[in-house]
Amino acid sequence: MKPRKPELLATAPSFLWLAVFVFVPVAIIFAIAFRPALPAGGIGEGWSLDAIRSLKDPIYISLLFRTVIISFVTTALCIALALPVAWYLAKLPPTWRSRILMLIIIPFWTNFVIRVFAWQQILHAEGIIANALRFIGILGESDRLLGNNVAVIIVSVYTYLPFAILPIFAAAEKFDFALLDAARDLGAKPFRAFRSVFLPGIRQGLVTAILIVFIPMLGSYVIPDMVGGTDSQMLGSKIAQRNFNDRNLPQAAALSCALTLLVLAPMLLRRKEKAA
């Protein structure tokens, strides 16, 4: 069916918005990736494949690998924690449900960077947790909580957990819990009923939660910068470093393009699945 004129007019503002704030900036970044870098920093004249070629650098490959692993582990932990929370939230009486939802949302009122900074204090070598763990002998004298991948994952899970809880809760709230009774009645053990009936029932929320955590995780750079160490750098941190410190804009752009394509892959997969 051909879209009619009024429909085109109605969608024009959003198209314009998308064009100005998404398509044009992305196109500019893609273009910069094919420009030469100036030794003093900035973008040179003419065209060059240097920045693109530099992506083959094994440093970048291992960086990409680590980025995906950390993102994956964080996403998995977020989902694993969000599932039971969403389950119990959906089963709570409405007054308690909105109170607890409020508690989940309240941390957003504090600036993200400040919250990460707070985690620096919590996980600090002389902080309360480190001292406590050292006291009971779990943590060695020279072991540190801060400055490693584990710290990055802990703080990332903390940051993204609400984003995982909300879509799963929205789906669980609509889930008909009588279906679980039906599954049990037909002979399913509790976990089997959960897996064969509850998980398929909240599938949409689950997929949304995975994307909403995994995609921003791929681009995260504040958390690895603030609580990670030298061996927990992620792709995002490298882009920031190339951009702000080295002023090698073409290389930063090339890395950004690689990341964009990486993010697009699961999105396209999801679209294909929706169409099916």
């Binding site: 008909d176 009588a178 279906l179 009774d181 039906a182 599954a183 009645d185 037909l186 009936v197 398929p200 029932g201 599938r203």
Partner: peptide, 12 residues
């Protein structure tokens, strides 16, 4: 076995 009031058929 039970026949539920809302049927409780598995939608998926």
């Amino acid at each position: 076995n039970t026949v539920f009031q809302s049927y409780a058929l598995f939608p998926h």
